[in-house]
Design a binder for these strands. Structure first.
Length: 231
DNA sequence: GACCAGGCACATC
DNA sequence: GATGTGCATGGT
């Protein structure tokens, strides 16, 4: 087995251990694809608990709808999403996303999601306020297309286990997972969610880190490096 | 009261 | 292209 095969096998064992520990995460925690899009913007550098409050406000208005958000006053939108922080910035970003959706696709998410993944990603990234993680979250969890979402916890785990690819930028890490895993929506969906779960449980909690379900793979990881290019 | 959270754009060098 | 900074609330 070559080295990439070994890594793929290890990653699946990681996934199995995480899944056993945390259970299937049932992501994305949202009632509709549009809610995923809104949540993806609101959760930028923000704890999900606070996003839940903001989304509840939008639902109560009710305003969790492309056209309503499109027509809503910017200041009013900012006030509704205040609990999730950066509310002025995020109100503008939501407006950008919704304006694109309404003006280019008549408010129809299915129309937005029609292009192939690479083209859709480029289109989303062209919207000010939609970066790589936000775009990929929308593609995976709202459009149901297989793309691996990389976040701070993903980087933390890879670094912690010495599995970081040559370059540690977003696209390189994403390519690493695409190269070593079966590219399916189901796997990418829950794998990313498991990284978030293990991050919540152990990242920055060094005293507890020895209880992390990934610790038992240390020896396997060392073996892979000893084996080098083949095994 | 300090520190952190499921980023991103923009300024500066 | 690498690095620094502003954005802001709520939980621990």
């Amino acid at each position: 087995m070559n080295r990439s095969g070994s890594i793929g096998k290890l990653l699946m064992e990681w996934y199995g251990a995480l899944r056993e520990r945390f259970g299937h995460r049932n992501w994305w925690p949202a009632g509709s694809p549009f809610e995923v899009c809104v949540g993806a913007v609101l959760t930028q550098n923000t704890a999900w608990k606070n996003v839940v409050k903001a989304i509840a406000n939008l639902k109560a208005e009710p305003a969790l709808d492309p056209l309503r958000l499109y027509e809503m006053d910017l200041m009013q939108l900012a006030e509704l999403i205040r609990p999730c922080g950066y509310y002025n910035v995020k109100a503008a970003r939501l407006k950008n996303l919704v304006s694109h959706l309404v003006e280019k696709h008549g408010g129809d998410l299915d129309a937005l999601f029609l292009p192939p993944t690479a083209a859709l990603r480029e289109e989303l990234l062209s919207i000010n306020g939609v970066g790589k993680e936000t775009a990929d979250s929308i593609i995976l969890y709202a459009a149901y297309k297989p793309i691996f979402v990389v976040d701070a916890y993903t980087k933390w785990v890879l670094e912690r286990h010495g599995l970081m690819p040559e370059r540690n930028d977003y696209d390189s890490i994403q390519a690493f997972f695409h190269a070593n895993l079966e590219c399916t929506v189901e796997l990418f969906n829950d794998f990313h969610a498991q990284f978030v779960a293990v991050g919540h449980a152990f990242c920055r909690k060094t005293p507890k880190c020895d209880q992390c379900p990934l610790e038992r793979f240390r020896e396997r990881e060392a073996e892979i490096w000893r084996a080098g290019g083949s095994s």
